[in-house]
Amino acid sequence: MKILVCLSNVPDTTTKIKLSGDQSALDMAGVQWVINPWDELALTRALDLKEKSEGKIDTITVITVGESLTEPTIRKALAVGADDAVRINLNPTDDYEVASNIAAWVKNNPYDIILSGIESSDFNGSAVGGMLAEFLKIPSVSSVSFLDMEGDKPLMKREIPGGTETIRVPMPFVAIVQKGIALDPRIPAMRGIMMARKKELTVVEPTGEGAKSTYIGFAMPKAKAKVKMIDAENAGQLITLLHEEAKVI
């Protein structure tokens, strides 16, 4: 069995966002790039599954749509245990373009399970997994917080408002995963870092469809009014203010 994990390369989540002078672009100077946290959880779960599959899952491939600056994060995925990697050499403009290009690769290189994170922490897109499944005409399951193999059949739980549903779909499918799918991401060991050098990273040129949308400008959120402090001794006054002034209760 083969698992594909889609990785997005994003600025570290503590990055302070700055805009270019004319607000037409984000200032990415000095940004540290990391694997999108949800994608990293997907990868962690894929590795866990492979390790306990007794050989039934033979390869974990990671795929990124991005230019060469994404390679350090791809290498990190290889260092923590992915078997090989694919990079589609394109600086993508939107989710549509990413999904279409990954689909073009998968059509010629089939996988049994495809994992993608529910959201990217940069543009907060959450469409790649669903779009990819639609391009491939295969099932997708969203908000997956649990994925395990029951024999040869994958079993999933998805988080619905106020609860969970345990569901199954036939392979191949796309699982769009969220928190809960795995614990903390792995830290690469020296051995893994050394092996990552020897693992295959295939670079292919884009053959999918182009973007349908593009960012034309950016803005910073409006500054918030100053906090109104309430004396701790009269904390109960808060309830009055919430009712009379803020009018939220």
């Binding site: 966002i17 805009l19 543009f123 400008g217 803005a219």
Partner: peptide, 14 residues
């Protein structure tokens, strides 16, 4: 975008 740390203006061409 960036979880509300900024706003993006997205033009949809389709």
């Amino acid at each position: 975008i960036f979880n509300g740390k900024a706003q993006g203006k997205l033009q949809i061409n389709s």
